[in-house]
Nucleic acid binder design. Sequence first.
DNA 1: CACTCAATTTGATTTAGATCAAAAAAGTGG
DNA 2: CCACTTTTTTGATCTAAATCAAATTGAGTG
Lengths: 268, 268
Amino acid sequence: MQGDTVIFKVLRGVRNAINFPRLRNPLHLVSPMDFSELKSVCCGCSIRELCLPAGLTDQEVLLLDQHMSHRQPIKKGESLYRTGDTFRSLYAVSTGFFKTSILHEDGRSQVTGFQMAGEILGLDAISTDRHICDAVALEDSVVCEVPFERFEELGQLMSNLQRRFNRTLSSEIVREQGIMLLLGSMRSEERLAAFLVNLAKRFSIRKQSGSELVLRMTREDIGSYLGLKLETVSRLLSRFHDEGLLDVHGRNIQILDQVGLNRLVGST
Amino acid sequence: MQGDTVIFKVLRGVRNAINFPRLRNPLHLVSPMDFSELKSVCCGCSIRELCLPAGLTDQEVLLLDQHMSHRQPIKKGESLYRTGDTFRSLYAVSTGFFKTSILHEDGRSQVTGFQMAGEILGLDAISTDRHICDAVALEDSVVCEVPFERFEELGQLMSNLQRRFNRTLSSEIVREQGIMLLLGSMRSEERLAAFLVNLAKRFSIRKQSGSELVLRMTREDIGSYLGLKLETVSRLLSRFHDEGLLDVHGRNIQILDQVGLNRLVGST
DNA sequence: CACTCAATTTGATTTAGATCAAAAAAGTGG
DNA sequence: CCACTTTTTTGATCTAAATCAAATTGAGTG
């Protein structure tokens, strides 16, 4: 294939250009390349800058690419991983929408996040080598698998990548702190408003409309995420609708008053 | 000083023994050593195994030591850092007790954690280079400052350290998920019971009594952390006392029925 | 030691959101 | 297209925890 030849050339360049320190076990670098693997997962990806490759040079991205597995499709409703599964890989959402939820012993469960294109799944599993939550696709999706052992080795080669990854992990800590604040000290309407504003922001960063939201999750999922019951979520949506903040048609929600919604989050 | 001489010898040994790859800028390794810095912060530390050096070899710990700043005392009530401060260092609690809290724009604040010996402060700041919470000492404490830039370089040298650090970050993510579960789907009594059980466990790991807790924080701090009002915390403590689960004398709390307390967390 | 200020406890009352219930709407598959 | 399940909405009622209020305890300071 023509494409592969080009990439091969560039790769040779990368090896020479990047002045990386020697690995203790550099076998995976000097072994003959498997061309079937050279799918250039990241290089042509439209959301590169929102994902793991963010901030890397083209050459570094190419090196990262080499260590990624194929893209993997996940059908709506399927689990990417489940609680207790041994952890081998992180997953970057390429397209689609996921939810993660933890299970409490007594059957209760709580949604801990919704992930869209560019966001990383599985960061929590690094600590114990086992997944501690379930990741379920809420629509037909595609993920990029990142075998973590290889990724850690690559981090040793590319300080740039490692630094970015430290930030990725730290950002997840910050995100969760935001939810702690939301769950611990906001009233129901503030929570829902914050949720919608956040969702809209993330959609618009991805070049999708920041006002026309198509929710992929049920009211129950939203409620679980926000520490509310589904009835409360439904009532609040109706109220926001009545107040002219939103236009609600089932899971299609249009934000009519961005400012008003933002005011709800910050105040009271 | 005699002590320094010994350490110096060992350090020479370390340099030769550890077969680390070359750094792009290895200046800080070959520059003449600053003996005043050689305090051996970690090596003799009793909580080494609970802290950043966990799992490192003696020689690796010595190398880490070389990159740490002095121990730094913090008086009760003082801030280690505040929201908005630029991030330069992580801090490992050596002795003492801290709380971290985030401030909402509208003045509301929420306690996001309590940190004791061996636990790391500042992980959330990596993402933005600014601290996003306040860290306040709840008793006279001592912290070990870990300049983060140097630490990242060291991570590039010692894959072992970097791997451990990835886990440290991931553990923090998991810890916060636990709190999300607590805030989102537990009733007040379960929250408080979970809090006490967790505190007791962490004390006992540190060779302190796992049943005689001396709380360093106010009822309001506890409430803020658990998403409850201080009156509720107080009432619950009184109730647990009446039910024979605890012996409560102000901030001195003795756990009388560990099993009963654990049952509260898991069930209902 | 007494004084002051902060923290804690306890009681009475209110309320936000949960729970229970039932109808309406939207998917889904044969 | 129809039968069937799941999801969503809306109403009536209940309750856990918040709020308001006041007394009590405790810690720190001149």
